[in-house]
């Protein structure tokens, strides 16, 4: 997912650069060369397939109509999202409110759901481990919740659908004092209202 995305970004920038160069260099450029157009088409095809071809069920795309294919993709994406959406806890490092890249898919699934269900809303509960001062931890929990909120907003979720609250170190899921317990407690819980 990540490399795919980076490749896409690089591609975009390259294309912009190429386009910029070509318009200044040659006036009679009619647009894309055949090769470029082919490459782009291939790229798009590769992209759209890359999303839908998760399970490889042996049915070729050609066998389905355009509508059928779209419906299937949507259903499958929804199922996949539903699985991801079962994950409702995002974890953090000590004294950090940075969302880890590994949490991205889960958060995107929540964003997609909130996007397509405008009436749904969530409360993001920020928590910390027990170490450090209580008030700083309240602020840290708040910032963790805010970071998750920012991510959802960037992914098109309306601000009105999201509330945040920080409990700092007051609501641990694991009350023992070990590194393991600490890492379980540094979290944001996504609660659907």
């Amino acid at each position: 997912m990540k490399t795919m995305n980076l490749r896409f970004l690089v591609m975009l920038l390259l294309l912009a650069f190429v386009a910029g160069c070509s318009t200044t260099d040659t006036q009679d450029d009619a647009g894309l060369t055949d090769e470029e157009a082919a490459a782009q088409a291939e790229e798009r095809a590769a992209r759209s397939r890359a999303f839908g071809a998760g399970s490889g069920d042996g049915i070729s795309d050609e066998d389905l109509s355009q509508e059928e294919r779209a419906a299937r993709d949507a259903r499958r994406a929804a199922e996949e999202g539903e699985d991801l959406r079962q994950e409702r806890v995002i974890y953090f490092d000590f004294d950090s409110a940075e969302i880890k890249r590994e949490s991205r898919a889960v958060l995107e699934a929540h964003a997609a759901y909130l996007n397509s269900n405008g009436n749904a809303s969530v409360t993001l509960q920020g928590h910390t481990d027990e170490r450090g001062t209580k008030e700083y931890n309240l602020a840290l929990g708040e910032r963790r919740a805010e970071a998750v909120k920012q991510f959802l907003v960037v992914n098109d979720v309306r601000r009105g659908q999201i509330e945040t609250v920080s409990y700092g170190e007051e609501r641990p899921v694991n009350e023992s004092s070990s590194e393991e317990a600490y890492s379980e407690n540094r979290r944001v819980e996504i609660d659907y209202n």
């Binding site: 980076l6 896409f8 992914n155």
Partner: peptide, 15 residues
Amino acid sequence: DREGQSSGELFFVIQ
């Protein structure tokens, strides 16, 4: 979804 991805990427860059 493609644009969503790039803004997701931007989120991490800014972070």
